[in-house]
Simulated scan of single mutants.
Amino acid sequence: MRVVVIAIGRLKQGPERELCERYRERFDDIGRKLGFRGLDIREIPESRARDAITRMAEEAAAISAAIPEKSVLVALDERGDNIDSAAFARHLGHWRDASVAHTIFVIGGADGLSPDLRRKAKVGIAFGSATWPHQMVRVMLLEQIYRAATILAGHPYHRA
């Protein structure tokens, strides 16, 4: 299974991008031994539309165009479930074991994800009730993906 993060917006050079790359590389190292085919990050430009509804619709169309068939869609959304790292790992392990081709994590733009895209998601995940900058959400997501791989591998990185 290939893991893909589709995010609206581009991370500039700096500590957030470096952390994302570090967790992506760590996941690739351990993930291949667990049957994962890699972790891709796809950045989609933010819509320049004047109103939020149009921006969300344009961004949803761009995200949808980047989602391969036979994918599980996971929405990072403030209305999503607060799950712990072990549950996150169980989801990834279950989809891998079910021979899902792609697990796609989506991070919307400043206006969030369109309701239609949220409905298409198999799972909605929130990182607590606080509002987080999108750059930090990406870092936290990539860390959780890496942590999930370490949990599935029985690696000591995760200490419950």
Rank of each mutant, 00 (worst) to 15 (best):
A75V: 10
E43H: 12
L76I: 12
A149D: 03
R55V: 02
F36T: 04
A60I: 03
R138V: 01
L152C: 04
G80L: 11
A148R: 12
R48Y: 01
I145D: 10
R24Y: 02
F105T: 01
V4K: 15
L117A: 08
D81G: 03
G80D: 01
R79A: 13
A149L: 05
V100P: 08
L92D: 04
A121F: 05
V5E: 04
K122D: 15
G124H: 04
K122L: 07
Y23G: 07
M56F: 06
N82Y: 03
S114C: 06
G154L: 08
R147D: 03
E18D: 15
L117T: 05
M140L: 15
E69I: 12
A7Q: 13
T54N: 10
L76K: 07
A52Q: 09
G38L: 12
G109Y: 01
A7R: 09
R26D: 10
F36N: 01
G80Q: 04
G108H: 03
L113C: 05
R147H: 03
D84K: 09
G38A: 11
F127S: 01
P68I: 02
L39C: 08
V137K: 01
V72N: 02
A121C: 07
R10N: 13
D111E: 13
E143V: 03
H155M: 12
C20A: 07
G108N: 10
L117R: 01
F27V: 02
L19P: 03
R17I: 04
E78M: 12
S114F: 00
R17K: 15
K120E: 14
A121M: 05
S71L: 05
G38S: 11
L73F: 07
Y146C: 05
R138C: 07
T54F: 05
W95F: 15
P156E: 09
N82R: 14
R138Y: 08
T131M: 09
F27G: 09
R118F: 04
H134D: 07
S99M: 11
A121R: 07
M140C: 11
V106S: 06
F127Q: 04
R32T: 08
P115F: 05
P68K: 00
D77S: 14
G14L: 13
H102A: 06
R48T: 14
S64T: 14
I67D: 08
A110N: 10
T131F: 03
R50D: 12
A160I: 04
K12M: 02
A49L: 00
E25T: 11
I107A: 12
R55I: 02
L152S: 04
E58K: 06
R10I: 14
A148H: 02
S114Q: 10
K33Q: 12
G80W: 11
L117E: 00
P45I: 11
I125Y: 11
A57H: 13
A86T: 07
